[in-house]
């Protein structure tokens, strides 16, 4: 197992290098002077000169790439054009918001997806099965940016149940420790802030959970159907065990193995979807930040944000693969 994990980590290195090459090359195939792109139109001559020296723009490309990598290793992602903040500091500040939203969405997706999947499988071809599978079809086909706006219209503007945007109401004080607001509220026992943070996260998280929920529901259903056909299920039923025990203790455990992989892969989908969801609900995470950067042509931010999101995504995929090997004893790791 250890050999497998270390081999997988080794494969990570060329992939991450590739990602860095793509990000590096992108800037250089864009027409115009990279220094000017990175500093924006307002940059002074001195600043441009300084950056050209710093990036080594007068050197050959491979030397420039080497310098780029060196800076990456030191965690130097440059400064943003508009706010003149260190890109790395900004990312550290915003990533928790994105992760909080993504995790909340995935929890919702897993909870409902797995429940719907199980009921659909145990009651195959029932009305419930048809309805939930049509729902799943609509879910995977949903333009989530539109759904988010519809939710906003119904639940915020018309009914007034949920806050329209943001992470926390203005009048709520919260001592920020980890930048995960829900966690911070629990840690500081600030129940008013907890309620407010949960209230704010519901709509964006439900919006973001649509596609993963549909996929998890489909996957759970088909995995359960497959497992329920196995002989050991018949044996368990023949022993006289209750339907509940057979479904949850015998079948679900094995059916969940492929579901875990699916959920892991959905993390990436959710991370990408976060750009849309955060933009709609003004959620101050990396997604909205990237969107703003694209709009303002802040290439330092685009570069840094892309690198970090891709790196996180790759590491998550690695964890999913390893987890899959750990929980599935039938797969012998080669």
């Amino acid at each position: 197992m250890l050999a497998y994990i270390s081999r997988r980590i080794l494969i990570l290195i060329p992939t991450l290098l590739g990602v860095s090459i793509i990000v590096f090359v992108m800037l250089h195939i864009t027409p115009g002077d990279p220094a000017e792109l990175l500093l924006g139109e307002r940059a002074t001559e001195e600043a441009l000169f300084e950056l050209r020296e710093h990036l080594g723009l007068n050197e050959p490309l491979y030397v420039q790439y080497g310098m780029f990598l060196k800076r990456l290793m030191k965690g130097d992602l440059g400064v943003t054009i508009w706010t003149r903040q260190k890109v790395w500091t900004e990312i550290k500040h915003r990533f928790p918001a994105t992760i909080e939203l993504t995790l909340a969405a995935l929890c919702i997706a897993c909870f409902f997806g797995i429940i719907f999947g199980i009921i659909s499988a145990t009651k195959q071809y029932s009305v419930f099965d048809y309805v939930s599978m049509i729902g799943a079809l609509a879910g995977v086909s949903m333009p989530i940016f539109w759904l988010g706006l519809i939710f906003m219209l119904i639940f915020s503007l018309n009914l007034g149940w949920l806050p329209i945007s943001g992470r926390l109401s203005v009048d709520i004080d919260l001592e920020v420790i980890t930048n995960f607001y829900i966690l911070d509220a629990v840690l500081t026992r600030n129940w008013a802030a907890l309620k407010d943070a949960v209230w704010h996260i519901i709509m964006p998280a439900v919006t973001l959970s649509t596609i993963p929920m549909a996929i998890v529901a489909r996957m759970t259903r088909s995995a359960m159907l497959e497992v329920l056909r196995q002989d050991y299920i018949k044996t368990a039923k023949a022993k006289g065990l209750s339907n509940f025990t057979v479904t949850f203790k015998h079948a679900l455990r094995n059916a969940l193995i492929p579901v875990v992989t699916t959920v892991g892969l959905q993390f990436g989908v959710a991370l990408g979807g976060a750009i849309l969801t955060e933009t709609i609900f003004a959620w101050p995470g990396v997604g909205k930040w990237m969107y703003d950067a694209v709009m303002q042509r802040d290439y330092m931010v685009i570069q840094g944000g892309t690198l970090i999101i891709a790196a996180v995504f790759v590491v998550i995929n690695l964890c999913v693969d390893v987890l899959y090997a750990v929980i599935n004893p039938r797969i012998s790791v080669q």
């Binding site: 990602v19 990408g272 750009i275 999101i309």
Partner: peptide, 23 residues
């Protein structure tokens, strides 16, 4: 296949957004 892995290392939509941002 390694090149394909690199393209897959970007979450969906992110790569498209970045490409369009530059082009």
């Amino acid at each position: 296949m390694r090149i394909m892995d690199i393209i897959l290392a970007f979450p969906y939509l992110l790569l498209a957004i970045v490409v369009v941002a530059y082009l």
